[in-house]
Design a protein around this nucleic acid. Sequence first.
DNA 1: TGCGCATCGATTGTCGACTGTATACAAGCA
DNA 2: TGCTTGTATACAGTCGACAATCGATGCGCA
Lengths: 223, 223
Amino acid sequence: MVEPQADIARIESLPLRLVVADMLRTGIVEGRLRPGTPIVEAALAEQLNVSRAPVREAIQILEADGLIDNLPYKGKRVKPLTAKSVEEIYSIREQFEAFAVRRIIESGADVSPLSEHVSAMFAAADAADLVALIAADAAFHRTLIRLADHGLLLTLWDHLALRIRQIMALRNRANADLRQVAANHPPIVEALTARDLDRVLSLVSQHSRSASEIDLKWLEVAP
Amino acid sequence: MVEPQADIARIESLPLRLVVADMLRTGIVEGRLRPGTPIVEAALAEQLNVSRAPVREAIQILEADGLIDNLPYKGKRVKPLTAKSVEEIYSIREQFEAFAVRRIIESGADVSPLSEHVSAMFAAADAADLVALIAADAAFHRTLIRLADHGLLLTLWDHLALRIRQIMALRNRANADLRQVAANHPPIVEALTARDLDRVLSLVSQHSRSASEIDLKWLEVAP
DNA sequence: TGCGCATCGATTGTCGACTGTATACAAGCA
DNA sequence: TGCTTGTATACAGTCGACAATCGATGCGCA
């Protein structure tokens, strides 16, 4: 159940379903709505002072994103996270990034946009600001994908990134070495700049796999 | 617009939105609803003798599948196919299949389930049955993905396969050499059986790229 | 003539009420 | 006792009506 909340803000007069979807999505990927939490249309509608229709549609959007499970006529819930699904998510991520860097190096795209995100990560690490670090990390990787100039890939990535954010929000944050996280990225930029495909691929692959291992470890204690 | 149709069959008492979604999906991937065709909720609802709610939800499902475009308050339509989107779809397909075969060879999974689909393809080619050939081809590739034992990959594949089917349905069918299509597949099975990763990768990649080229060629004359 | 502006039609967006389905639990029966 | 059968409840699913939005059309006016 989502915490009690006042009336819904209709920013920019977006359709309500999108506002509601965003609210739920944020709650899920930030870990406030944990896997398994029941999502009940009527309850949500009442809390947000809207009818069930837009709530229902919002839930269906998140269903398509793979964040919510639908058990027909029984109920919906935040999709449970299993070790296997975490492994699958990270292994696909590895493929996507590998594909992206191959395209980037082939096309000779300018990789300088990555640098500012690296700086942001170090700044966040120095300030011990985990939220900012996660945001900068996400921005770095999304930019990497964007440089591949592949619309479908970017769409698929955005879906995947949601689930990765969810996983990261769920793991025990106290144990992360923030500067280490930031330090993982400059070598990728360097290797990209040097057009050293093999080295980039190896770094990216290692990056995904170590993240996967960390998450699997922490999900054991907090499933 | 979908052709006039009597009352909707509520097979197995599935929720209406799923029945409607299936109907629309089939129409799109079989090419009866061509890219750009407007999809109007009210009209569909009347044709199918249901209310707008399930129709609306069905449309949203296909929106998530990437088959339908939504221009808010203006209308929805079958998403137009551009050369770039075709290229993107096939290039992602290539990545997925490459990933799948790497996993298959690593895990040593039994690839014999592929053989029956190859047989089916040759039978269809001999009978000059294009529909059966396309079905067998789709089954072959889906099985290949399934053998990788990766749930998320299979989900992503199924979405992609829809759009590939749509593209294939839209291209001029008279010009295909059916036996040639079938003949492309046995070498893949052989190389898989021999665990020859490099050769499989090369074959699979070639397979995707030639399909992409053919489709791009035919989409020029019928966009 | 040409330009702003009310109006209208088409289409999606939202609502509240009704209906269908599944589960659990209690009541009836062999 | 153990099985079936009813019944209550908590949901999702569907419906018909109404509201909001956008684009086009046509009208008045300089």
